[in-house]
Write a protein that binds this DNA or RNA. Sequence first.
DNA 1: GTCTATATAGTGATAGAC
DNA 2: GTCTATCACTATATAGAC
Lengths: 241, 241
Amino acid sequence: MRDDDTNTPAANLALRQSANAREDQDATSKDARPRRKASIRASNESHLLACAEAVFAERGFEGASTALIAERAGLPKANLHYYFPTKLSLYWRVLDDLFEEWNAAASTFDASDDPAQAIGGYVRAKMALSRRRPLGSKVWANEIISGATHMQDILLKRVKPWMESRVTLIERWIEEGLLAPVEPRTLLFMIWATTQHYADFEAQIRALAGKRALSAASFETTTEEVVKMILRASGARSPHA
Amino acid sequence: MRDDDTNTPAANLALRQSANAREDQDATSKDARPRRKASIRASNESHLLACAEAVFAERGFEGASTALIAERAGLPKANLHYYFPTKLSLYWRVLDDLFEEWNAAASTFDASDDPAQAIGGYVRAKMALSRRRPLGSKVWANEIISGATHMQDILLKRVKPWMESRVTLIERWIEEGLLAPVEPRTLLFMIWATTQHYADFEAQIRALAGKRALSAASFETTTEEVVKMILRASGARSPHA
DNA sequence: GTCTATATAGTGATAGAC
DNA sequence: GTCTATCACTATATAGAC
């Protein structure tokens, strides 16, 4: 929600206020008051979450300050602490949000029984996610680099089970001769690393390959290039060929 | 130098002092004084650099504090500022150090005219570096994620020229039919992303694959698995086959 | 639900005795 | 070359008027 207006505090404030105003117009009936309040809360919270994602991405958890997040959101710091009592509670909400997106992309892995389709589709979904929400990917990366102290639960209870079942699936594909005898986890790590690189190492890619390399058209081409290379790496064959 | 004693301040102090004592024993001649002083400086500086690398890796530049770095080194904060006037100067020294290692690994790319040898050797060198100095890789990753503001010079003047010439080389291999028609930069990014993942995402790998996955023997196997997959992805053929 | 003012602790950096 | 004491500043978080 409004995840592209995280730059100047002034612009943010203007957007935020017009959004509130729009919601106020609908609030004409008797029961409007609680609905409007709820809307204000929802609007401010999601706006703060978007700004927090940007600041956590740029400076990590310890380096981020609630003052800077509030400033970007065009709100006083005390307001931020009204919605999110502690910096950690705000951070957790951001991480939780990110996992939901991760999970949505993960589900594309099961879209087909054909390994080339499944893996190709998953790589495309991960590349699209890197493109659409690079800041989120950076927050995740920062969290893992810093030791993943706040993500042990997500990793162990949510990500690990997903990985285990996908490992089993990949092993079956190998047995059926549809994939080269790869180590399934190594393949999955390679997919994650390569696709997330286009979000996390954006600044390096820009410096080395020029910003045109990150244009929409170029990103499409790169995505298909990555798909091709990952499929070759995994030795995927069509089941009916 | 002593890059594995960055855990407890007490242990660090003990090691540091015994190192100094060892150096003091050699300082018996007249001209020993300046040499001993130089040794103290060199020893303290490199010890501080090692501890700084660990703290910058865990918390990023903004999140790291000179107090914490000094504490890990078993030195008072004022001492750190005696050797490194500002936090930024310390950070730059760490980045500079890291680039030297990056550069050493990069040179392995030119060890052979055979693309399979060159690429395979480079992947092994990068995996070995991830294994030997994961904290350094994390500092680099953190710096790029945060926008690479302090690394523009290194990226543009050192990394980019290296990449350009390697792109030309890869394009020649493709013309000669020794490589599949891949986009050279996409291949290089894939190599970097995949190999550095084993350093930067250590915590995630540990959580998902268990710590035995990061044992020495397992890492060797994984390295060869990664080499195999990258070579397949690039479609490398031997020039004399 | 908003926001000024502030409590308390930590920050980078320095002075100056040893 | 070492280290205590301290400066000016910023951090998270809260109180309490509006």
